[in-house]
Each structure stands twice: as structure tokens, then as C-alpha cells.
Amino acid sequence: MQSLANPALHRNGRFAKDKLFVILCIAATMLSITMLIILLTSIGLQGKDFLSWKFLSSAPSRKPAKAGIYPAMMGTIFACGVCALSAIPIGVGTAILLEEFKPRNKHLRLIHSIIQLNITNLAGVPSIVYGILGLTAFAHMFGVLGTVDQPILTIGTTEDWYHLRLPFGRSVLAGGLTLMLVILPIIIISSQEALRAVPGSLRHGALALGCTKWQTVWSTSLPAAIPGIMTGTILAMSRAIGEAAPLLIIAALYLRFTPGHLMDDFSAMPLQIFNWASRPQADFHYVAASGIIVLLAILLTFNAIAITIRQLTHRPMS
């Protein structure tokens, strides 16, 4: 009542509230930034002692001082290579289907919207569920194609680099394909956004010159959307590099050998870090911190590349 009677007081109270809120906002933001800084410095302090060239080039060991991350790094490179080669074509293909080939038929439109909703759902599925799916579908092949010991099909021996067998077993190929399932929805959604940002006038121009729908996509929309697609793909790949949960089910936690062919057992950097971090000895925690530094360095490089591409190509296209 008093504040209503006295307009000056009323205004003062409101402005004070506004100022208080600004202080609260800045405090909240500072808190978030402080947490990020504490996180990075604590890992830096813990990991600096074990970080050396030897750490990058040797195998894990029972002694913390001799431990290295080389096999896990090679495992990550193999699995993420498989993942990129399989996820990018399927993901971009799905995005093109959903953005450029919108059907007019009523039934086809229903299927189209079901696929769209399904991708939203897949993006929310916990990654460990993908791990179970990968174990059943890729590693064991639903049990219908024999077992790993008695495969239904083998090409080459375990000595050859092109060794292949069905079912895949807990191999690099199965792990990479599982990672593909995890990042596929991310790639699809970001590629869709990139294609949506291409102005319609470009397409109309191509269609008016007599291009078919696919020629329009291949010669106009896709080239215009490539920077956006690349940014999304790089960010998705950095997710795949750091993803541990699905591989926890398929890959090995501790391995001294690098994979020689696609059917080999493998470990990955996040798994090796998990293995070190879950040991009780404090020294292994420092080794884990060194592993995290290597992992974060790789991921930051990926993020920096993605952000640079976005900054360089950030201009309107119409």
C-alpha cells in the first residue's frame, strides 16, 4: 500500500529488484565459469606429472610410472574411423530425405513425420541402451549367424589385416558401428538444420533450369549446406571420441595390444581412463588425469576446427 501511495518508493523498489537480479545473474554465471576452471585446473594439476612422450607411446602397465595410453589411442582412432565412415553417409542421406524430399501424398507424409519423430526419440535414448543393441546386433548378430568361436563366415586368418568374420564379436568393427548408432541422430539433426538454412531461391533457380530433384540437391543445396554439415559432423565425432558407456559393454577396459585388423579386440581412451580412475591407488588417479588431458586436447582441437569453420562461413546465402 505504501509503495502504491508513494510512486518514488515504488519505482525505487522495482529498480532495486532489477539490480539485485543482475547481481544474481552475474553470480550464477561466475559460478558456472568457476566450476569449469576448477575442473580444468584440478585435472591439469593431477595429470602433469605423468604426462610425457613415453605416456603417449607405451602400453598400460601395472606400475603407474610405466603406464601409457598408446593402445587405447589406436583403438579410439580405429573405432572412430569406422564410425565416421558409416555414420556420415547414412546421416547426411537421412537428412536429405527428410529436408529435400518432402512427399505430398498423405500416407507418405505420415511415414515422413514418423521418421522425423523417431529421430527426435533416438537422440534421447541413453547411450548404454545403444551398447546393449550393439552387443546383440553387431557382436552376436542375434545369435543366428553362429558364435564367435564357430563363425559362419571367415575371410583371411587372424594374421591378415583384412581378416573378417560373421558375427563380428567384440571387435573394433562392432564398437565402431555401435558408436555410429549413438551419433547418427546428432549428425541427422545438425545436417537437417544446415539444409534448412539454404534459401529456397537457390533450389528454385536450379529447378527452373531443368534440374531433377536430385540434381538440385547435389549441385545446389548440398554444396551450400556443406559448412554446416561439417561443423555438426565434427562435433558429433568429438562426442564419439569421448563416449564410453556403449563401448563399456563391447570393448576391453585394459589392453596392452593395438588392434591389427577390424576383428581384433580393442580398448578406447575413455575406457582406459575409466579403468585407471576406478582403481583405489592414488597414483593411478594421476595417470587417469594425464589420460584425460590427452583426451581433452584432442576434443578441444576438434571443437576449435568446428568453431573456425562456422566463423569462416558465417555469411548469408541469399
Binding site: 584440478s42 580412475a277 576438434f302 571443437n303
Partner: peptide
Amino acid sequence: VLKPMLEVLAGIPTVVFGFFALTV
């Protein structure tokens, strides 16, 4: 400045947060 920092935070693998929880 803040948006890229948030992206960095979003890009940190969860195993790192687990390690942070356990050791810090």
C-alpha cells in the same frame, strides 16, 4: 566469449566429470 565456453563444457566427456566427482 561465454557461448564457446559453454560449448567447451558441453563437449567434455562424461568420464571426465566422473573423475572430477571422485577426486575433487
